[in-house]
Design a binder for these strands. Structure first.
Lengths: 349, 349
DNA sequence: CTGAAAGCGCTAACAA
DNA sequence: TTGTTAGCGCTTTCAG
């Protein structure tokens, strides 16, 4: 009337891993005592606690997290999902996202949480909650909101604890943490104007909230300086550098005059600089260039790239914090982090 | 004599997530039936199976993975650990490692596995097995072996299912999957020699197994061509570009003559090209440069970088395969993957 | 201070 | 075909 599913002693799938009962037996105590000892309970005598801890350590025994979580009805892992846009071809490979991942890993590790990473097609963002639905993670961090605003709202409404790195947008019912994109765009363009640039190309994909805000800042800076906004100078390009190259080449070939480019990411800026060189435009003499993100490569570029620095290291901690709070049931307001203009040679003319 | 730890109905930590019992109640069947239905058992009538599946889907219910794993005594997540060397300052941020991560994510997802990512200090690599010890993961993938050969052997001896991306070295008791570093070094240097280079600088850290093998290939190529091996041309630099810059600058300032550089990574090669430019050496006219990895940036560099391509996409699948096999108890032999020289402008003189 | 026993959410004999 | 029930590895009341 039971189910000893281990009749043949040769059939066990993944034995060898010891469990609490094993070390209890070896130590000659009950599992309850081992549990208490390993969890540092004061109820157990210091001596046995010590003895059991050492035994466990020497045997490389660690409490089975799954069972513990099940019993305690909680868990210590958070899901980080990288939306992966087929079209934009922006995979995990953008250095900015990579560094974000690193930053999150650090913040999570600091707090004793594990990080479950997955990529999900940006068109099916509802899959992002899978790790939560299955109980594998206590919450979800989304890197970038892309075009999925509505789906994210839906997940949030369903009660999925959720924080997204991205822009703060109207009607958002989830917590976002992001850089101050409007200020970033403003700073970048204002700087260019101060360096004497008058016809500044903007390149990015304003259908994403972040780029849209950067564009807004850009336009504001033009307005502030009394400069006209020429639509011909606004180049649409997703984060894919191929598009950027084509768009910029076309612009140059069309004979349109411009003396600066503000790109929505450093990767884009790199493509811009290469394209300019291809067309014998020298940076910064002929065209000043400003990027966005301040990835490590930016300072080593040739010429070193002026860019808007996103507070990546800080962001990781901030995001994790927000998620943990929202798991605890708090209503966490969106947060906008200050960004900073880092001036290097690419914009000095 | 029991433990209803939910006396106050307002105290429950993270309720709201439904469980099998809930949907069983709603569907008016037993949990066993739900379980069977959701697992696609043939024992349950097609009608109820359908009904229950739809109910679950509409309620966003998903089987709790932790409980299922506990009961089934297995799990579907693998740990990917990125050794993180304080000294080499090589974090997750090297694009090569990033793309490796992406490749693993894809391969794992394809097979229905989750990916738990952690960084561990390369000096305390024994922590890499934590996810396995706690039962959180069924195996561990290590990206790079660095200097921790012995510790990896130890983990493997302990029975931790383990695959490392890296070089195949003598006395290794774990499975490694890696590019053919000797061949890579050979191809790179032979190519340089064919282009007429005679004094070729090698830059890398030969205390890591991978770089050591690339150096071996490099030396072999020199030997094959009857060229002398000048120790002065062998520059030690970890993957940190700062070291590379300093070392190369010194070499130049010392007046040592050279006409090519073979760098152990593309990131290093980038630093090399910048340093050369700083010293008014033109690439490839004055100095030909070959890198290693073929990260995305390489083809967009200025000039585009000749490099040894590592089969990243393929590697992810290969590694996952090896790990799964070794979890299944097979003895998986190390595997060396073919690499390929991609000739671009940086070496054409 | 320690042990016995119940049960976290699930699966699979076994019985009906 | 479906329900009943035991138990995966752990924590924690309650009794000793």
């Amino acid at each position: 009337m039971t189910l000893p599913p281990d009749p043949a002693p040769a059939e066990r799938p993944e034995r060898q891993r010891l469990q609490m009962a094993d070390i209890a037996r070896i130590a000659g105590v009950s599992v309850a005592t081992v549990s208490r000892a390993l969890n540092g309970s004061q109820e157990v005598s210091a001596a046995t606690r010590q003895r059991i801890s050492e035994l466990a350590r020497s045997l490389n025994y660690t409490i089975n997290a799954g069972a513990k979580n099940l019993r305690l009805r909680h868990n210590k892992t958070v899901a980080v999902v990288i939306p992966f846009d087929q079209q934009a071809r922006l995979h995990v490979s953008d250095p900015f996202f990579l560094s974000m991942l690193g930053s999150l890993a650090d913040a999570l590790t600091d707090q004793g949480y594990d990080m479950l990473v997955s990529r999900v097609d940006a068109d099916q963002l509802e899959n992002a909650a899978r790790a939560w639905d299955t109980g594998a993670a206590l919450g979800v961090i989304l890197i970038g909101q892309w075009h999925s605003h509505a789906q994210i709202n839906a997940m949030s409404d369903r009660g999925v604890p959720l924080v997204v790195w991205g822009a703060q947008v109207p009607l958002q019912r989830y917590c976002s943490v992001g850089g101050d994109n409007v200020a970033g765009g403003l700073m970048a363009t204002r700087h260019l104007i101060e360096r004497g640039c008058r016809r500044i190309v903007f390149i990015g994909d304003p259908t994403t909230p972040e780029a849209a805000q950067r564009l807004r800042g850009h336009q504001q800076a033009l307005l502030d300086a009394g400069l006209p906004h020429d639509p011909a100078l606004q180049l649409h390009s997703s984060f894919d550098t191929g598009q950027a190259r084509v768009a910029l080449s076309r612009l140059i070939e069309s004979g349109t005059v411009f003396d600066a480019v503000f790109a929505c990411s450093d990767v884009l800026a790199m493509a811009v600089m290469q394209t300019l060189r291809l067309h014998d435009r020298e940076v910064p003499r002929d065209v000043a260039v400003v990027g966005y993100d301040d990835i490590e490569w930016a300072s080593h570029a040739d010429p070193p790239l002026t860019t808007v620095r996103q507070p990546v290291a800080h962001a990781g901690a901030e995001i994790v914090h927000a998620l943990l709070d929202s798991v605890a049931g708090e209503i966490v307001p969106p947060r906008t982090l200050a960004v900073e203009l880092v001036v290097r040679r690419s914009s000095l003319r």
